[in-house]
Write a protein that binds this DNA or RNA. Structure first.
Length: 595
RNA sequence: GGUUCCGUAGCUCAACUGGAUAGAGCAACUGCCUUCUAAGCAGUAGGUUUCGAGUUCGACUCUCGACGGAAUCACCA
């Protein structure tokens, strides 16, 4: 039973019966804590129908609902706000449907399929904090869509070719002395990253040398021998030069094994990987066909453009004068390829930073100009940058927070705090290690997901490592606490089934408050998908845990004499634990039985 | 310079898309472990929502202007 829908229908019925007109924007919202009731009708917009003051309108409506609705036991009016008190029996019914549904909150399959792209790293350096936000976000949004009844395909495109990897290759050739992950003991992605940094250092030195000789900065950047070497390698790679290709393959394979370890740790996965080396030539034919159909045009030098000025944007190049592709071209090709690979998908979600907002706006516009209807269902899941207290992260200046390092630090901190709190009595060493992982990563994921993705956010290493308050571990802790109650109930042979709840007639306010929050889960899952925002779920999980802790503190469960009340409280606790667990899973966070 | 986004407590973030006295966490200060886990709970303090106009029953939310910040405006990816 969905109380929102039931009440909405009742109020609409009351309005049409009292005022003989339909209302199309009925505003039903949760009642503020400070007033009695759970649902509030905002009556200002209804005064047009009632031809009465807001207070009078609310009063008439409240009176009618109390008489006829069946589930409204009381009401009160504050200004133009009608606060409705739903009778406890209805709340118990709500709870019965929640408790009876082991998968409460998740919506039934809707037959739709979508694709979520996320992660999409370059292969010249290890993953950093920004990638963590991307990965957690993409994974979570995929889970949220699954919970909304979609079939979801998670993919990523790996930027495995281009000048960036050639830079690492050049530096490795010059300074590497054949170093490999095996000989050095360095994780593959970090090893390749080390040579990317080495490239940059040598490059800067060479530029300085050249400018000292009186060459202009711009010219020096071009002439620096190490840069020419990288450019040359890129050219050789494009010509399939065997030696270059071999080195490229080898170094990429180091990176992949490093990435795979990191992905495993992060708990994210992909159904299919796309490689830019396979897709970077795509889209060219599509663009040429667009020229024939007059969607695009050619300039005298032979380059191909799209004119978006009528859409408030600029002109954009799609093929260079020499016929080669640009980034946009291959994205057009890749998008089309994916709809061929997964013919049933209706749309795509691209998890990419907000610095590419313009790019995606243009991409979707071009696709729809080419006549692809699904372009309307493509969404750029754009997220803000993660700032450090010292400012922006810059790989070259060494101000990046490395993903592997950060995960390790978080887990270490979790271990430290767990030991300090003396929580490890009777816990085996392997279970303890699992627990530290769960807590440390839970804290990190929650920290990055609790903020609205669109917003730029600040990562303060000291604060982020906190495990109290509005954090993942707070919710994990609440779950573990409830599990202790369930274990106790089992140990003294108390079991609950839905029929036991029938006997319950009244609720304590602390119980009703928990139930109120509990009943919102389904709507939150819907909202989270509508807004592409895991933060909706994170905030909800926190609210629920907080509300439950208040109940936990104010009512000692096992002191209760009345069996039906005792059973209800156990069942309520169980339902909260299940909901917290499922909510956290939507964020990619697991919860422990004990902590 | 054009376009887009942002500015809320000392700090980090909310605010159901125009609704009630703007809420949480951290940090500070008070209390609460002999009863289901104190990674918790209860409380105190902290706000002219950057500033100024406007729209209306009602504005953090919409409009205009100012100030401050970010991204983007590549034949880079």
């Amino acid at each position: 039973m969905n109380l929102d829908l039931v009440l909405r229908a009742k109020v609409e019925e009351a309005v049409s019966s009292l005022f003989h007109q339909q209302t199309d924007n009925l505003q039903l919202q949760p009642t503020n804590q400070e007033f009695e009731g759970s649902h509030t009708v905002v009556c200002f917009p209804l005064t047009k129908l009632s031809k009465k003051s807001p207070e009078e309108t609310a009063r008439i409506l409240g009176e009618y609902l109390q008489q006829h609705a069946g589930i409204v036991s009381k009401y009160n009016v504050v200004k133009g706000f009608l606060n409705l008190v739903v009778e406890d029996k209805a709340w118990v019914d709500v709870f019965k449907s929640i408790y009876g549904n082991k998968n409460y909150g998740h919506l039934p399959a809707n037959g739709l399929e979508i694709m979520v792209e996320y992660s999409s790293p370059n292969t010249n350096k290890p993953l950093h904090l920004g990638h963590l936000r991307n990965n957690f976000l993409g994974y979570s949004v995929a889970e949220i869509f699954k919970a909304n009844g979609y079939k979801v395909h998670k993919v990523q495109i790996i930027n495995d070719r281009g000048i960036h990897i050639c830079k690492s290759m050049a530096a490795w050739k010059l300074f590497g002395n054949g170093e490999t992950p095996e000989t050095s003991g360095i994780k593959g992605d970090h090893l390749v990253g080390k040579y990317y940094v080495a490239f940059d250092r040598a490059y800067k030195e060479q530029i300085a040398d050249l400018t000292d000789k009186g060459i202009s900065q711009e010219e020096a950047e071009k002439q620096a021998p190490i840069m020419q070497m990288a450019v040359d390698m890129l050219r050789k790679w494009e010509q399939h030069d065997p030696e270059t290709t071999q080195l490229w393959k080898t170094m990429n394979s180091w990176v992949y094994s490093g990435f795979n370890a990191t992905y495993k740790r992060m708990g994210v996965d992909f159904e299919k990987l796309y490689y830019e080396s396979d897709t970077y030539l795509l889209g060219k034919e599509e663009v040429l066909r667009g020229v024939e159909r007059g969607v695009f045009f050619k300039k005298p030098d032979g380059s191909v453009w799209v004119d978006l000025t009528s859409d408030g944007l600029d002109q954009k190049v799609l093929l260079r004068a020499d016929g080669t592709s640009v980034y946009m071209t291959q994205d057009i090709g890749t998008a089309i390829l994916r709809f061929r690979d997964f013919p049933k998908i209706t749309g795509q979600i691209y998890t990419v930073g907000n610095e590419q907002e313009y790019h995606f706006k243009v991409l979707f516009l071009i696709l729809s100009k080419l006549g692809y209807d699904w372009a309307k269902k493509c969404y750029h899941l754009s997220y803000g940058m993660v700032d450090l207290p010292s400012g922006k992260m810059k790989s070259r200046e060494g101000t990046v927070v490395d993903a592997d390092d950060l995960m390790n630090e978080m887990v270490e901190e979790a271990e430290k705090q767990t030991r300090e709190l003396g929580k490890l009595e009777g816990v085996s060493e392997t279970d303890a290690v699992k627990l530290f992982d769960m807590i440390g990563l839970g804290a990190l994921k929650f920290f990055l997901l609790k903020v609205d993705p669109k917003k730029r956010m600040l990562f303060d290493p000291n604060e982020s490592i906190q495990l109290q308050g509005f954090t993942g571990p707070f919710i994990q802790y609440t779950h573990a606490r409830i599990r202790a109650i369930i274990r106790k109930a089992e140990s003294i042979d108390i079991s609950v089934n839905v029929a036991d709840l029938q006997l319950l007639t009244s609720l304590e306010s602390a119980e009703r408050d928990v139930l109120k929050v509990l009943s919102l889960f389904e709507n939150k899952i819907r909202d989270a998908a509508k807004e592409y925002s895991p933060s909706v779920i994170a905030n909800y999980a926190f609210d629920l845990a907080k509300q439950y802790n208040q109940f936990y503190q104010s009512i000692p469960i096992f002191n209760e004499e009345d069996t039906s009340k005792l059973k209800f409280r156990i069942a309520l606790s169980e339902a909260v634990a299940g909901t917290l667990k499922r909510a956290m899973l939507l964020l990619g966070i697991t919860v422990p039985e004990k902590m």
